[in-house]
Write a protein that binds this DNA or RNA. Sequence first.
DNA 1: CCATATTAGATAGTGTTACTATCTACCCTG
DNA 2: CAGGGTAGATAGTAACACTATCTAATATGG
Lengths: 231, 231
Amino acid sequence: MRISELSSRCEVPIPTIKFYLREGLLPRGERSGANQASYGELHVRRLRLIRGLVEVGGLKLEVVRRVIDALDDDSVSLHDALGRAHSSLMPPPVVVGRPTHTPTVHVDALLRRWGWSLHAGSPLRAALAAALGALEQVGRPMSAEALDGYATAAADVAALDVDQLPADRTLAVEAAVVGTLMREPVLLILRRMAHEDRSSPQIGRRASPRKADEEPHRPDQENSKKRDDAL
Amino acid sequence: MRISELSSRCEVPIPTIKFYLREGLLPRGERSGANQASYGELHVRRLRLIRGLVEVGGLKLEVVRRVIDALDDDSVSLHDALGRAHSSLMPPPVVVGRPTHTPTVHVDALLRRWGWSLHAGSPLRAALAAALGALEQVGRPMSAEALDGYATAAADVAALDVDQLPADRTLAVEAAVVGTLMREPVLLILRRMAHEDRSSPQIGRRASPRKADEEPHRPDQENSKKRDDAL
DNA sequence: CCATATTAGATAGTGTTACTATCTACCCTG
DNA sequence: CAGGGTAGATAGTAACACTATCTAATATGG
């Protein structure tokens, strides 16, 4: 297919596609003349991946490039590809704010408690310490209980994420990266929905306040965990 | 206190503080002369909030402004302040990519299943539809089961978030907004940690591969849900 | 009490990011 | 064989978040 078809199928303007080609985010099409090149399904997939990571995941192009490079490099294992994505993702929210000397004590304790092993230079440790430190700075530190609750939820969704990965290595890596990055907004949006629902009845400014016993419920199976409706 | 002390206490350069003052993100200090103004603890709190939202939360200043305006406006309820924050937060990831005609059918079904009520114009509905649509586009659609699992986790952390809110309205609104926005990175980082831990042993490129039965465990209480270690 | 540093406030400049526009061939199609 | 699409290169733009500089006034230490 030609560039115009690639453009229309992915709803990305041609100049933007050319920009991605220049930047090496999208591989060149197969040349068939001085001014002709043909693109295939790979390009469609790749282009949609780029747009998804940028628009839905909010990633910067530099990060997208690193993720894509990891995908294309057959010598990179799934774990390393994920680690690379994490390393690329973390600096922005973390390196800022000075060489944060926030102690990673709480973080290490949490990791030990959960038996989680991170590779030595993982930026996640410092990132979590920084995030918790910032919460303390604004006077809303997270309790160990809240942190454990968050870790429980994180472990639960992580278990769902590694489910049903394809057999092929390239596809598996792509699926893992996509699952890690592009499902984040889903989790955040659902959390905000739950917040909005929970904040609605308590304040009582809404037209149809929900009755207290009509509280949010689980659709079916599953236990209901500890429930603490403060506020 | 003078601007230099505010600067050192919050580790924010003076020109940046002046910039925030110009932009109305930070209220002016109390003037005590043609070139003197004094700042108080409110300014410290506010400045740390701004930096936290920007650095940890990754918010744009325009969004921070709207959140802060909601905090300062006593006529804005907690629910509306949250809704305003959500509205400010969503457009970037959503409005992009053209007038997304993604059907919100699945989303509406999920909301009905969970009994969640969003206010009519909430951008969260469209945002979720867009996020799910993007996942389909890259060939990794989320199953209803995975979505329900995510919703369960989201509901769990949301319950933790509305816990222990202060009585004072202003503080409660601030706590809710901070909790919603600044705890997001914590959840995402924990999820990535769980991913990294899970992807580590399977591939077996690490120096000390964990034995299969030494799988991740819950620190104490709680059930262990269904466990699916594909990959 | 005066030299130096600091401050308020305004205006203008900078660096980054992610495109977008334009240009010069060239070539394919009707 | 004209008109439009195409490749690739160069340059321009818009948004964002600061950062630098300037003026005039004031605080402060020796």
